[in-house]
Amino acid sequence: MRFLLDTEQHAFADSLHAMLTAADTPAVVRDWSRGDHAGGRALWRRVAEAGVFGLVVPEEYGGLGPHPVELAVAFVELGRHAVPGPLVETVAAAVLLGEGGPAKRFLPGLAAGELIATVATPTGYALDGDAAALHLAPTPEGLHLSPGPGPVRPSLDPARRLTPLAPGGELLTPDPSSAHALTWARLATAAQALGVGLALLDRTVAHVRQRTQFGVPIGSFQAVKHRLADAKIALEFARPLLFGAAMSLRPADVAAAKLKACEAAYATARTALQLHGAIGYTAEYDLSLWLTKARALRTAWGTPEECGDAVLEAAC
């Protein structure tokens, strides 16, 4: 029994954090939101070089994986820095492609960051289809290589560009590992959401320490403190669910982590908005990049109700 990350895992998180801090992700996110993907693609390659996508790709296809705990560590950092793009979808794609021909064809590119993938969800939309080169569409017949994306439908998170995928295309495999892909996608989403929540908490703590009203920092008021304490508690109790789920990879554990990490991130977003006041309600202030993502992730790859069903199904 040892339920603590080791020094190597902490060092991995620290190195990603340092790299992403230096990358000025807010500017990259804003370009991405306008459909300018140049900065995002450059960042994507650096994320890949750090080994992130390799964590889900087996060694024989050019990766290091599977390493779900390290993947969770990495996605917390990606969320903290609001890194744009179909990150979770690329993880899901790697699992969907499984083994054999399609894996051999695409996984090395995914691991290396040369290929950005997206996957259509049951809603029919795929995230950032306009930026991805590999468009996967699960259908009742199997996994199709879609001919390409349709027009962008805006998301509440401007950095998430939802695109329908054109029907038809090559049938890559009749029996993709859909359930397993969903588990990995939910794990990555949970980690990303936790990172989003942690970033919102950090930024809000910094704000209330320096924002002065009535002659004192607003962070000295108990009404403010208690909201932030609750956000901290919710995030810190989601964290062990995330890493416990990464270790077991049981669908119910992952669903629980997804539900609670997204709930904690969203609650933190509401607190962050309230405590920033009007400035937090503006698109131009960078807080908005995390605020909107917290809402979007809540329903991505499984609503709270769907995740709850997975928990109950395993418990009953």
Binding site: M1, R2, F3, L4, E236, F237, A238, R239, P240, L241, F243, G244, D253, A256, L259, K260, P304, E305, G308, V311, L312, A315
Partner: peptide, 28 residues
């Protein structure tokens, strides 16, 4: 009561894992 039962199931697990992590830090 469905969502609250889910919360109870997940909360117990979260508390267990949080405690294991805290115990690990304490033991170290």
């Amino acid at each position: 009561a469905r969502a609250r039962v889910v919360d109870a199931l997940i909360g117990a697990r979260a508390y267990q894992l949080f405690t294991y992590a805290a115990a690990g830090r304490f033991l170290e």
